[in-house]
Design a protein around this nucleic acid. Sequence first.
DNA 1: CCTCATATTATGTCTAGACATAATGGCGCA
DNA 2: TGCGCCATTATGTCTAGACATAATATGAGG
Lengths: 225, 225
Amino acid sequence: MNPARRIREEIAASIQSGEWRPGDRVPTEQELAARYGCARATVSKALGELAASGLVERRRKAGTFVAHPPVHSAVMTVPDLAELIAARGEAYRWELASLETADAGDDLAGPALRIEGVHMAAGEAFALERRFIALGEVPEAADADFARVAPGTWLLGHIPWTQARHVIRAVNPTRKEAALLTTGVGAACLELDRTTWRAGRVVTHVRQLFRGDRFDLVAEFNAGP
Amino acid sequence: MNPARRIREEIAASIQSGEWRPGDRVPTEQELAARYGCARATVSKALGELAASGLVERRRKAGTFVAHPPVHSAVMTVPDLAELIAARGEAYRWELASLETADAGDDLAGPALRIEGVHMAAGEAFALERRFIALGEVPEAADADFARVAPGTWLLGHIPWTQARHVIRAVNPTRKEAALLTTGVGAACLELDRTTWRAGRVVTHVRQLFRGDRFDLVAEFNAGP
DNA sequence: CCTCATATTATGTCTAGACATAATGGCGCA
DNA sequence: TGCGCCATTATGTCTAGACATAATATGAGG
């Protein structure tokens, strides 16, 4: 076993088991180097990685300490709907409802495509989608065939490395939305709002609406290495 | 500016601007070391950090490549309700409804506390909570005063470094729940289910129910260093 | 032309030492 | 006693070199 990895894992285990509690002091690099019989740089690397993963906190001169756990954070994975539905073993289809060039959404500067459509799973409506794509940021979108391919899927291959912000809420559908989702206005739906930036400018904004009884989101948190 | 930091930031900028596209090859450590006039170990550290943050992918012999962006992942922060409500400038209060020792929840081994109560904001019900606490894992919980302090708040100070899994869905409340939340059974509510582990064993399981028009979750994704 | 062994190469890890930096604790001075 | 300065100390960063490892590219043989 790598010395660095061994140090990392042993310290992580001490923390996760509760043996070392938040705020406790971790031995100094020198002590650990002596204990594990390796160079200080190796210990430093191991501790640096633990710090990067949030398990410990390092302060010059003061030393290394077991970090206080984050209040509650977790990594949520929002799958591509085509993949999600395929993974369920159901037939996926995208149905374009409307496509037009709108001028200026809320936070989109300049002209944008406004796309509405339905994600179908096994012949039934699975999710409604309304999307804006900033043409100033993704001019190729004007030539894409959104009747054939869902805009989300198309974008995946055309906009690398963006930032995103999701807002998740429970809403009641409008009468029209309820009809499209084959449910009633009194049935809870999950709304997912995602805004995507690149270099500080909005690339796309999408609102997806799911029937509450057909979809849920999962987020996980696993500390450490 | 640090050489390591400079390398990291320049490469990250090249990727985030879209100049280097997913799959593109990043110069080798030797080339970068020569270009930046530093040791290979320094370049290696910078690239290692970029790899840890997911921006590049490294394969032995093959080289370093711009990573393909994750389908869609984001970090969600689930605030402590007491803090959330206080941050809104409203008075927070926890109202215990029932507390009993139940034997075995779904995935809890052994005896557990079963706690029900309401989180109040400005005198109105903000969220319903039903929680199990595994007494085998947190025996001190038996002595805590859950009439005075909300179990979530209490646990924050008593169980360091756990893993967690959240399931988020939109549901309709039961008649009883609707009454407690002063709303109707046709009003969409957000349900948050959180299971918390330590060392592979369930510590606590909580279900929180929010009025859809009063609460939403936010998740963000920011790539890079 | 295909397959398998081998040489090459880029990353992975480590060392021993050096200097930088920042924060703390204590010492000296007022 | 109280304040501010300074030495100490732990981390932060870097170097030059070494060896390990794994995957690709190449060449030999079938």
